[in-house]
Write a protein that binds this DNA or RNA. Structure first.
Lengths: 147, 147
DNA sequence: TAAGATTGAATCGTCAATCTTA
DNA sequence: TAAGATTGACGATTCAATCTTA
């Protein structure tokens, strides 16, 4: 059992929630203003692009993006309907599927990045010195590590 | 117009999203395991408790919690139905409402806090030194400040 | 029996429209 | 005309149940 959190820890927690909410809202707003898909879609497109020719299994994407099974299944439904993702049967496991990026999907990701990048810079880069951003990334890394 | 974000800034952004998601998921899970309401409810209960006898107007709560108008309206619907929040007409502005905490709402907040506190400690306190938590809170504060 | 994936039903969030009063 | 608040319609998420193959 762990002890009670200090005031400082509670403050760090509260600000983590608030800072994420504020920055995400800003990025979402910018993408929407340009008639582009949401960040969820970008995350999927990027992971599939990184996976290259082999593609990814849905369960791999779930773990990478911390999404629930049914949530991802329906997200892929929508992205496949939009023509950005292809679903194929899986050779090595008959239960599974293999997801891959379409050319239209790759194009959309490239189209989204400049807008996304500007938002990140406005929400984070413009508010911190380089050394501060480095420290922030390091401290947040400690919160992510699996114990 | 702002420039392109550095790799460090992009990494800080990505980890901010991931760390928030991971810690929030953990806290939500703990509350649910104890059959308690979600964090949204806690936030509302706490703000109303802090506002004391006077209570709060819905638009004040929206700004405090960064919630959309219709979103808050329906959240209050549910919390009022559960008996935790009271909605009354507003004396000084006929358009508005005045929200206040019921005794049951105050009790529920007190019941939630120990579970919430343990989760915060596990998700943040146990992973950082005291000085690190202080630094993290300070850096996150810079992201929240209104420009 | 369990893992990977999908689906139905219900809940919640979002957008635009609406209502009331300032 | 605009601010505060609510509502209808629609889209997204969640939970549990289901289907298929390991």
């Amino acid at each position: 059992v762990t002890g009670q959190p200090s005031d400082t820890v509670v403050r760090a927690w509260a600000r983590l929630q608030r800072a994420q909410q504020a920055t995400l809202t800003e990025v979402d707003r910018a993408l929407k203003a340009e008639q582009l898909p949401s960040l969820d879609w970008y995350d999927v497109l990027l992971e599939l692009e990184r996976s290259g020719e082999a593609g990814l299994r849905p369960f791999e994407l779930e773990r990478e993006l911390l999404l629930a099974q049914s949530n991802l299944s329906r997200l892929i439904d929508r992205m496949a309907a939009a023509g950005y993702v292809a679903r194929a049967a899986c050779d090595e496991d008959g239960r599974g599927r293999r997801l891959s990026l379409t050319e239209a999907g790759a194009q959309m990701r490239r189209r989204m990045w400049p807008v996304y990048a500007r938002s990140i810079q406005a929400a984070v880069g413009d508010k911190l010195e380089a050394a501060e951003a480095e420290t922030l990334a390091e401290l947040l890394g400690k919160l992510i590590s699996r114990p």
